[in-house]
Design a protein around this nucleic acid. Structure first.
Ligand SMILES: [Zn+2]
Ligand SMILES: [Zn+2]
Ligand SMILES: [Zn+2]
Ligand SMILES: [Zn+2]
Lengths: 151, 151
DNA sequence: GATGATATGTTATAATATAACACTTCATCC
DNA sequence: GGATGAAGTGTTATATTATAACATATCATC
């Protein structure tokens, strides 16, 4: 699904978005740059500029705790589009394998809005990032502990 | 309240914590360093090391979206301490004046835990940061718009 | 074809964070 | 008391992430 680019992206923007979608895990600006050198990109600022625009379009999120970026895997309902996913993105980030899932939870969203309202706070953006061990890595760790268990 | 240092902090750790508590808003590591030069600190790594320990003790939080640090203004219930505040820290950050409040919300906390459980995710830490305009700055902005209103 | 808005490319630099290594301090064990 | 080990310190150098400044290019619109 993931909603095709709504407006026309420029060349650099398309390149960066494709690179982000290709890589399964969050990528830093310099990693993106390295991957796009053969496509003609030369300097960090080119990547940062594309990322800035992509974020503004809601196609990309920045993972603050990682200094990295991911392609959005939802429709957060920026326009009149039906079936928008309610609530802000909640990122679940594995500290071991870097696998990252983007979830949403309307209750968290509502709660946050309520909180902001109570504070008289004009909410612009929210960043919610959960860090820990993903299911796969948890299983693998348990396995290893078993194997290496001191008897 | 804010709970006095539970174990003995070292000199550098105390200095950094005091500096954080003194400044009302989040401070970057280099700003902290500059403020502590006359106390004998010389190099960034000294500040980062102190911050690392203080974070581990739960006395300091890192604001990921700001690359800055604040002293914790809650008791998140690390030990057997009674009257611990339930739920993870929710930071409300003004993008205009940098004023930052640390709140908690047990419902958000519960929801996050539930979400992690559903994913089979072993949750270590969570970072929740809301950005926008604080009440003061919202009021001031409205005022200015009034005054500068095109008639 | 002038104007303005947006995107680009290039070079240099700022801001944030860590690596590596030598030395000190302090508790513990023998 | 001296050996041992863990934690903290200080110092220098370097890595990583992000932006400033400036010149040029592209495209739509008038
Ligand atoms: Zn998204
Ligand atoms: Zn994992
Ligand atoms: Zn706190
Ligand atoms: Zn404000």
């Amino acid at each position: 699904m993931t909603a095709a680019p709504p407006k026309s992206l420029t060349r650099n923007q398309s390149l960066v978005l494709s690179a982000l979608r290709a890589g399964g895990t969050p990528q830093g600006a310099y990693a993106l740059l390295d991957g796009l050198r053969d496509q003609g990109l030369r300097a960090p600022v080119q990547v940062y500029r594309a990322l800035e625009r992509l974020q503004a379009l809601g196609l990309v999120h920045r993972l603050e705790s990682l200094n990295a970026f991911v392609a959005c895997s939802h429709d957060h309902g920026g326009t009149e589009d039906a079936e928008a996913t309610p609530g802000p993105a909640v990122f679940v980030i594995c500290e071991h394998c870097a696998a990252t899932r983007e979830l949403t939870d309307p209750i968290i969203g509502g709660r946050i809005e309520r909180l902001a309202r109570t504070e008289g706070f004009g909410l612009h953006t929210s960043s919610i990032e959960l860090r820990g061990l993903c299911a796969v890595c948890t299983a693998r760790e348990a396995e290893e502990t078993e194997t290496t268990a001191d008897p």
